[in-house]
Simulated assay, not measured.
Amino acid sequence: MPNCLMCNRALPPCLTLKQIFSFHPHESPIICEKCRQTFRWIEKETACPGCSRPQKASTICMDCEKWQARLPSEYVSHEAFFYYDAALKEWLQRYKFQGDTRFAQIMSATIQTFLKKSPDAVVVPIPVSEASYAKRGFNQCEELLRIASLPYENWLINISFEKKQSEKKRQERLKTAQPFQLAPTFNKDITSVILFDDVYTTGRTLMHAKHVFAEAGVKRITSFSIGR
């Protein structure tokens, strides 16, 4: 009997009679229901429509107002799935920082369901710097898409030599210089791109990435993340 990836408790069998007699392969859960419920969904009805920031009313938050004042308003289009709280931080710690890529499977169904809404858009994961890749051995966003068996394009190159965003304070993040450039493989005929990052904090990283694609003539550029 397999164990839950999160808490290591034995996973009880959960096949229904319909599944048993369907004679089709059944994908067993990798975390228990108790652990799955620790991930708190952001309520879209009250979240900021620009960045999915959890709040009490579905109005543009102050951060998005500032972005709209500085950049084209269409840049401010982002959707996040879960609160960046203790449960998500633990998942990110074990997946991204400890390098246990099995934890990517936990988010596969959520990402697959979301991307079904935009079948014609090309998904582009936010790239990590060469230093981060050398240390970690993988790009956490790219790996999430690969594990979920979803197509994507590495059309961004991270040329930054600054310290990682996770090591910066808020004001430092907002002052980060443009770290991206287009890859030579970029398809100039593409009209719609969805950028993917693991966590949305200030929005600075995604705004830099959106600017690169906007300058290249891409008409629709949105983004999504696991946490906010």
Results as ranks from 00 to 15, higher is better:
residue 8 N to G: 06
residue 168 K to P: 04
residue 61 C to H: 01
residue 125 P to S: 01
residue 158 N to Q: 06
residue 129 S to N: 03
residue 199 V to F: 00
residue 211 H to T: 15
residue 221 I to H: 03
residue 177 A to R: 14
residue 85 D to H: 09
residue 101 T to W: 13
residue 52 S to C: 04
residue 40 R to G: 04
residue 6 M to R: 12
residue 13 P to A: 10
residue 60 I to E: 09
residue 36 R to W: 15
residue 24 H to A: 13
residue 146 R to F: 01
residue 26 H to K: 12
residue 203 G to C: 08
residue 228 R to Q: 14
residue 216 A to Q: 06
residue 122 V to F: 03
residue 185 T to I: 13
residue 14 C to T: 10
residue 226 I to D: 00
residue 51 C to E: 01
residue 78 H to S: 03
residue 54 P to L: 02
residue 104 A to N: 10
residue 141 C to I: 09
residue 137 G to Y: 03
residue 133 Y to R: 10
residue 49 P to N: 00
residue 24 H to T: 08
residue 108 S to N: 13
residue 11 L to P: 14
residue 88 L to S: 07
residue 8 N to F: 08
residue 112 Q to C: 10
residue 139 N to D: 01
residue 29 P to G: 08
residue 148 A to W: 00
residue 221 I to D: 09
residue 150 L to R: 07
residue 43 E to T: 03
residue 182 L to H: 10
residue 170 R to F: 10
residue 174 L to E: 14
residue 157 I to C: 12
residue 103 F to C: 09
residue 77 S to K: 14
residue 207 M to E: 08
residue 36 R to M: 09
residue 206 L to Q: 00
residue 164 K to N: 14
residue 201 T to Q: 06
residue 114 F to R: 14
residue 74 E to H: 08
residue 169 K to S: 14
residue 198 D to Q: 11
residue 95 Y to T: 06
residue 134 A to F: 00
residue 151 P to L: 03
residue 137 G to I: 06
residue 193 V to F: 05
residue 214 A to Y: 11
residue 48 C to Q: 01
residue 200 Y to G: 08
residue 217 G to R: 05
residue 212 V to D: 00
residue 79 E to A: 06
residue 43 E to L: 12
residue 138 F to Y: 05
residue 24 H to C: 11
residue 57 A to N: 10
residue 8 N to I: 02
residue 209 A to P: 02
residue 93 Q to F: 10
residue 30 I to W: 05
residue 74 E to G: 05
residue 139 N to H: 05
residue 66 K to M: 12
residue 122 V to P: 01
residue 98 Q to N: 14
residue 62 M to T: 13
residue 134 A to W: 03
residue 227 G to Y: 02
residue 179 P to H: 12
residue 39 F to P: 09
residue 195 L to F: 04
residue 16 T to R: 14
residue 175 K to G: 03
